[in-house]
Each structure stands twice: as C-alpha cells, then as structure tokens.
Design a protein around this nucleic acid. Structure first.
Length: 114
DNA sequence: CAATTGACGCGGT
DNA sequence: TACCGCGCCAATT
C-alpha cells in the first residue's frame, strides 16, 4: 500500500462534511483506487483512532461495519449526534446522507500537473 | 514463497 | 429476506 493511498484516503475521510457519510467503496474510488474498499477498511483499522472521522464511513448499503462491537454502537451514536437519520435496521439512509463530493474538492491524487 | 485474513461489494440460491 | 460464495488487492503469518 503506497503512502499516497493512505494520504488520499485519510484526507478524503477527513473532508467528509458533518452529517454526511461515504461508503468504503466510494472512498476508495474517490481516492483514486477503485476496488480498494477493503484497503480503506484496513487503513481505518490501523489508523490512529480519533485522528479522523472514521464513523462517517459505512458499508455499501449504509450498513455499519462489524455490528455487535462497541465500535459499531459508538459509530451509530456519533452519526445520530450529527443528525444522520438511521433506518430501522440501524443503517444509514444513503439517499439522504451519502456525501456527494463536488468537482474540485477531490482530495486524492491532487493534480499537481494541472 | 504459498496460504490465510480482512472496518468490503455484488450476485445467486 | 437471509445465508453462501466469489472477486479484489495487500498485509501478515
């Protein structure tokens, strides 16, 4: 995993607005590394906790990762605290809170040659 | 060097 | 709707 990947992903997640969320796959894709959804998860797992709003990253269908763990419960609490409407199953309503990054806000792979 | 795992994702049964 | 399997890409053992 190149440090660039980590930089792009962490920066991207850190850029997620409050009350919005992104899916692992989306983060990887926006960071410039499609199919690297798992690596995003791995990165968050290895990344220092409290360093970035990892709670704004959810599964493909708005599902919270590792259900049953304290982390999952904590994540839900954080999301609700941000005003994120959770569906009955405890999943995030992506239709309402999926972050739609605007062009120019791309954090990963900064076009230095632009 | 080969096998297994992992904060994932999608399709099939 | 719930459960199972396969694909992905790197890291670890």
């Amino acid at each position: 995993m190149s440090p660039e990947f980590q930089r792009a992903v962490t920066a991207l997640i850190a850029a997620i607005p409050r009350g919005k969320v992104l899916t692992y796959g989306r983060v990887a894709e926006l960071a410039g590394y499609p199919r690297h959804a798992r690596h995003v998860g791995r990165l968050l797992g290895t990344a220092p906790q409290g360093a970035l709003p990892w709670h704004r990253v959810v599964g493909a269908c708005g599902r919270i990762a590792r259900p049953g763990t304290e982390s999952a419960d904590w994540q839900r609490a954080l999301l609700e605290a941000e005003g994120v409407t959770l569906q009955a199953r405890g999943t995030v309503d992506l239709a309402r809170h999926l972050w739609h990054p605007e062009a120019g806000q791309q954090v990963g792979r900064t076009p230095a040659s632009a």
